[in-house]
């Protein structure tokens, strides 16, 4: 516990740690205010075809919708903020030479990796929690609560009382997905001796995988199920009715398995690694 506290202390002493929090602290209110001003037009535009047949009654622009939109829009950017810290955990210490101090202490390398991994997971959780709280609290303060409309292939409207658990579950699933990203960059971090490499590599992998998923060619369609990014978007399954529980568990399981594999590779690599920095 002492050691985890030490790791967290180190993480929170570094300026880069606050880039993530600062980015969220700026982006979240920005999106909220923009939605507050212009959101109604957006919603009406989205629901044009329904207007022919229906009259709308009640407010759709609310803190819940804002939180949903924030979750959807920031989903591609958060991995960068995560990698910034988790990609630095081993490589950064290698670059600064402090890894020597750690590795020559009477603590097994496996334990050292596990402590750093736990610190990466804690940081990720703190960032996602901050994002969830900022989105929800600020959104509700500015726009209140209400029914949530989700426009996907189908338009879903969820009753106000049926929304919060979905949003919290989605943020929870998002956390698992981001843990996967953190594990990936942590793994890259164990191979590198400076933190730029793991950060760029993590982003390259994620962006490439997302691009491959997006291009609808049969070759890509075959490999899509094998890309972990495919499962990262499953938080949206919480906004379907009926709930595709099987798919949610499958995605969580696949991501969990990836985390386990990434961590195992990190441990094996770090145990065998020559500390030459």
């Amino acid at each position: 516990m002492n050691l985890l506290r030490f790791e967290l202390f180190k993480i929170f002493c570094k300026p880069r740690t606050y880039i993530g929090f600062a980015a969220i602290a700026v982006l979240v209110p920005l999106i909220q205010i923009a939605l507050y001003i212009d959101g109604q037009t957006y919603i009406e535009f989205s629901l044009q075809n329904l207007k022919e047949a229906f009259d709308f009654q009640g407010e759709l622009l609310n803190g819940y919708l804002a939180s949903y939109i924030i979750l959807a829009t920031l989903y591609v950017h958060i991995p960068f903020l995560i990698a910034l810290v988790s990609g630095d955990l081993l490589a950064g210490e290698a670059a600064s030479g402090t890894l020597r101090l750690l590795v020559t202490r009477p603590i097994s390398r496996t334990r050292l990796v596990l402590i750093k991994f736990a610190a990466a997971m804690t940081y990720t959780a703190a960032l996602i929690l901050f994002m969830a709280l900022a989105s929800l609290i600020l959104g509700i303060l500015i726009m209140g609560t209400g029914d949530l409309i989700v426009i996907r292939n189908t338009i879903y409207v969820f009753s106000e009382s049926d929304v919060l658990w979905r949003l919290l579950s989605a943020f929870g699933f998002g956390l698992v997905a981001m843990w996967c990203v953190a594990s990936l960059s942590f793994m890259f971090s164990s191979f590198a001796s400076n933190s730029i490499g793991p950060i760029i590599l993590t982003m390259t992998v994620i962006i490439s995988f997302i691009v491959i998923s997006a291009i609808d060619l049969s070759v890509f369609r075959v490999i899509k199920p094998f890309l972990f990014t495919t499962y990262m978007g499953s938080w949206k399954l919480f906004f379907e009715e009926p709930l595709a529980l099987r798919d949610i568990w499958l995605s969580t399981g696949v991501l969990g398995l990836h985390i386990l594999v990434f961590l195992t590779v990190t441990i094996i690599n770090f145990k065998r690694k020559d500390i030459l920095s």
């Binding site: 050691l3 030490f6 402090t98 020597r100 020559t104 202490r105």
Partner: peptide, 27 residues
């Protein structure tokens, strides 16, 4: 007790905190 090559310590911590934190890694 080991000091290998350059004495790279945590620059953002005080000398005292470096010793305190690193000693915690000794158990």
């Amino acid at each position: 007790g080991i000091l290998v090559e350059k004495p790279d310590l945590y620059g953002f911590l005080s000398g005292y905190d470096n010793l305190s934190m690193l000693s915690s890694l000794n158990g």
